[in-house]
Design a binder for these strands. Structure first.
Lengths: 210, 210
DNA sequence: TGGTAGACTGACTGGGTAGTCAGCAAGATG
DNA sequence: CATCTTGCTGACTACCCAGTCAGTCTACCA
């Protein structure tokens, strides 16, 4: 129906559709059981196909896992970049960063479980497979540059912007973990607000006391 | 040689010695490969015994893992309680908390890997198996009570002591992870000092500005 | 020296699963 | 209607490993 080299039709669309549904099924199964305990049969069943079909679209269990992880990670990253970019002050940027991450993970608990497991795997295997490490870098960078500017403008005291960004990152990660594991007695806004407040107070310019 | 009901001799001592050496071997193997990838054969080889021997001392792979984890956890907890208890000011307590945790994990990287994996497992399985959750509670409590007192004394502004303690906990965990994964360009003291400083500034009493 | 108890061994079993591939069904084509 | 194509299927293979247990080894004692 179209030029064969650029035609994105029918087969491609169908293939893309399947791939997407396989990734969704995989996310559920990996999220519930973890990589090792998840079986290809379970993913196939969740997707409503036979196991062999999965292998027509992905060469291995690891490949499906990676595709799942990468898709969610990219989505969250885009959201972070967008919201942090919209912020007009450094304080808003910090709040946006914490809030977006907390909300996103809260809304995608399976992804959060996969994420935590993936970090554990990277910590375990040491230097290899730096998917998470790279992702952390990228996510943190947007926040970091905001803090850098705030330091330069004298809105906050002189601190290492990267270290602050990473601290915010760690706190929001811990927050989500606790919310998912224990539940929480307050809203995402309140929790995120508390962290923002704590950090922002910690960044206040020196006022000559001490 | 002694009263048979309380006698701790020979057999008991030998058994205890073996158990300890098995736990050490297990820590190495679990730390290097993670629970799923670790095999009883590898642990047995690391301990210099046959696989069957492990089962004379521990009923299952999970049991060895739990024993390993619990032993290290208890050791770290004792250290935290001791050092935080020695601190005379809230600031010192926070610094001690961050420093002890960072140093301990740094000195026991295999334990840190097991710890991270265990948290991932608890997040994945949801409500069940609250070993880590309980441990976090206990570790955090000592710091939390220090902050409570500081709030009561007016040394710091009015904040939720538990939330602050958890935030410190999360930041120190993230710090260790990064130090082990990426390495670090500064000392434990400097990194711990930075976090302490950030939090302490964040806790400074309001001074009427806005 | 012969005999016993108890610690230790490692080949084996049973269960489970990643990945394969011969065959099937359904639509297209002539 | 015969044949081809293509996407899909699921039984099957090959492998891995937790946990077992019959048998060995060693220390000790009579």
């Amino acid at each position: 129906m179209n030029d064969e080299s650029t035609a994105p039709s029918k087969e491609d669309v169908v293939a893309e559709f399947r791939r997407r549904s396989f990734v969704e099924a995989a996310r559920r199964v990996f999220g519930e059981r973890g990589f090792e305990q998840a079986t290809m049969d379970a993913i196939a069943e969740a997707a409503g196909v036979a196991k062999g079909t999965l292998y027509l679209y992905y060469p291995s269990k690891q490949a499906i896992h990676d595709a799942t992880f990468a898709a969610d990670m990219a989505a969250m990253e885009a959201l972070i970049t967008e919201r942090v970019g919209q912020a007009t002050t450094a304080r808003e940027a910090i709040e946006a960063f914490v809030t977006v991450r907390t909300e996103y993970f809260q809304q995608h608990p399976d992804f959060f479980r996969i994420y935590v497991a993936e970090i554990a795997r990277e910590v375990a295997t040491g230097t290899s497979g730096r998917v998470c490490t790279a992702a952390v870098d990228r996510q943190t960078r947007s926040l970091q540059s905001v803090i850098e500017k705030a330091v330069a403008a004298g809105d906050v005291r002189v601190v290492d912007p990267e270290a602050v960004a990473l601290a915010v990152f760690d706190m929001s990660k811990g927050l989500v973990g606790r919310r998912l594991l224990i539940g929480s007695r307050s809203t995402v806004e309140r929790d995120a607000g508390f962290l923002t407040d704590l950090i922002w107070a910690g960044l206040a310019p020196d006022r000559g006391s001490k």
